[in-house]
């Protein structure tokens, strides 16, 4: 178990290192830099002034120096300075993190709470009308762009109720109800897709398990259908479901990019798009690394869960 964890952590660190290179390179590949954007807001261009600003920001140095500098910064816990805002990146990034994490967690909770039971019902009632309705409903969730769903929700709210959720982050300390409303709607828009996926996997994996011998044995022993499904089958069917939850978590953060934009929530994902457009390298680099860390940790967590769910799974060594 310990060696396994060490192994996984090593891989995670290597992954992050690789990611840092790719993101760094991609950003440098993008046409234009922060100085071009600054000049575009001023409506003119001056090569000599541009050179001076590049020097000021340190982006006139060779790429490898900049890259090593960034790694060194991460190592010392200092994330550098935002080019656009002229203040330490961490100061900008920090308030964004809880918003995105909460939204992602809430979406996932919603997805599981909705996806697993409907999946079970659908499997138990295989080929019934209810099964078909639920399957179509879930397939629809997989097919709708989350941002469009968000747009339609906002549009509906403003047309029928002339009300929309608050424009800035409402802390739960301030007003719990408003906070809940603010997060629930986007979480619904994002979670729907994930719940659809979870429902499908739950259904198919449960169907497979229900065909196994031991289920038949349990049935033969006279146990009621409900007990068989919930006590025996479901636990064994959860393994692929947990896998999907882990994979889906990464997707979900991607989906937040636009949902945060549509709902104007001050989270990591919305800020990332703005930072990319502004070529604010320190912010983009660090935000992407943050997303990567969250995703890798969630994958690790899922792997750990395997052991809990299935005693046959052993962690190497």
């Amino acid at each position: 178990m310990k060696t396994y964890l060490a192994q996984r952590l090593t891989i995670a660190v290597l992954t992050l290192l690789g990611m840092s290179m790719v993101i760094f390179a991609l950003l440098r590949l993008a046409p234009g830099d922060i100085v071009d954007i600054l000049f575009s807001t001023a409506g003119y261009v001056s090569p000599s002034e541009k050179q001076a600003i590049m020097k000021e920001l340190g982006i006139d140095r060779p790429y490898w120096v900049q890259y090593l500098d960034w790694l060194r910064q991460i190592g010392t816990g200092d994330l550098g300075k935002s080019y656009r805002y002229d203040v330490p990146a961490w100061q900008i990034v920090r308030p964004l993190l809880p918003v995105t994490l909460e939204l992602a967690a809430l979406s996932m909770v919603f997805a599981v709470l909705f996806g697993v039971p409907t999946g079970v019902v659908s499997a138990v009632r295989q080929d019934s009308t209810l099964d078909y309705v639920l399957r179509v409903f879930s397939l629809a969730g997989l097919s709708m762009p989350a941002f469009w769903l968000g747009m339609v929700i906002i549009l509906g709210l403003v047309t029928w109720f002339r009300w929309i959720p608050p424009l800035t982050y409402v802390s739960p300390m301030e007003d719990l109800k408003l906070h809940a409303v603010q997060f629930l709607l986007p979480a619904l828009a994002v979670g729907y897709r994930s719940s659809a996926l979870i429902m499908r996997i739950t259904r198919s994996s449960l169907l497979e398990v229900l065909r196994e011998d031991y289920i038949r044995t349990a049935r033969a022993k006279g146990q009621s259908g409900r007990v068989v499904v919930w006590r025996h089958a479901l636990k064994n069917a959860m393994l692929p479901v947990v896998t999907v939850i882990g994979i889906e978590f990464a997707f979900l953060i991607g989906g937040l990019v636009v949902t945060e934009t549509v709902f104007n929530l001050p989270g990591v994902a919305r800020f990332l798009v703005q930072a990319i457009l502004w070529r604010d390298y320190p912010i983009v680099q660090n935000l992407v690394m943050f997303i990567a860390i969250v995703v890798i940790l969630s994958n690790l967590l899922v792997d750990m869960l395997y052991g809990v769910l299935d005693p046959r799974v052993r962690y190497g060594g």
Binding site: I154, L155, I164, L167, N264, V273
Partner: peptide, 19 residues
């Protein structure tokens, strides 16, 4: 002043009286 990138949201906020 609230920066709202998405145009539709901006308009909805004005219409809803938030702005």
């Amino acid at each position: 002043y609230f920066p709202i990138v998405e145009r539709g949201t901006r308009q909805a906020a004005l219409q809803a009286g938030k702005l």
